[in-house]
Amino acid sequence: MSDEDEEELILSELSDEELVPQMHDDLYDGLKEEVEEGVYILLERGWEPYAVLTNALVEGMRIVGIDFRDGILFVPEVLLAANAMKTGMAILKPLLAETGAPRMGKMVIGTVKGDIHDIGKNLVSMMMEGAGFEVVDLGINNPVENYLEAIENEKPDILGMSALLTTTMPYMKVVIDRLVELGLRDDFVVLVGGAPLNEDFSKAIGADAYCRDAAVAVETAKEFMARKHNVLSAG
């Protein structure tokens, strides 16, 4: 079909039942402006910001995450989708602050010392925020002192560490060992991620879990929070 034959889709003419899956498609295709328009339309129709976030954006990114895991999508497509989601979230964030949204927990996250790679970490931050976590992002190249300071100030439920290099991933153990020395290790869950990491490494350094990608990080974080709540309820 030629471009002329293609009928232009008017998002505002779609019903909610049609618009939300269309937004998932647009997110999947990294179409920032369309996602932005979809968010505004749903808000104008009286949707709660939290419902827009979870049903349209997070669900769309979840599909992207599955196809990334299955090798259907690759990093560039995921980044384009993430950019589209970021645009939508920028509209929703102030509204969520006003209207309130369920808070899942708090995460401090950062790339370890000697490492400047942050694509994976940024995806995790965004997806965690989308899932209702408050995220304090320490950025890149963090020595152990940065983590300790953030832990003291923020009192997180979860500490996330990221590394892309084989040469920098051992620094995660330096941070965990220091937490053990200070008697802080059991105060929160430690999640680690990054391309060269694996389950065995995560266990060997004393982390709670290795997260292969952003979607797994969110699911793992939710599981740990649920366990924590169960323990508190039982206690």
Binding site: L79, L80, I116, H117, D118, I119
Partner: peptide, 18 residues
Amino acid sequence: PLGLGKHPELRDMYFGNY
């Protein structure tokens, strides 16, 4: 492989810290 041919706007996401 980084998709920069089709999406040069991604360049700084990859290389912004370099």
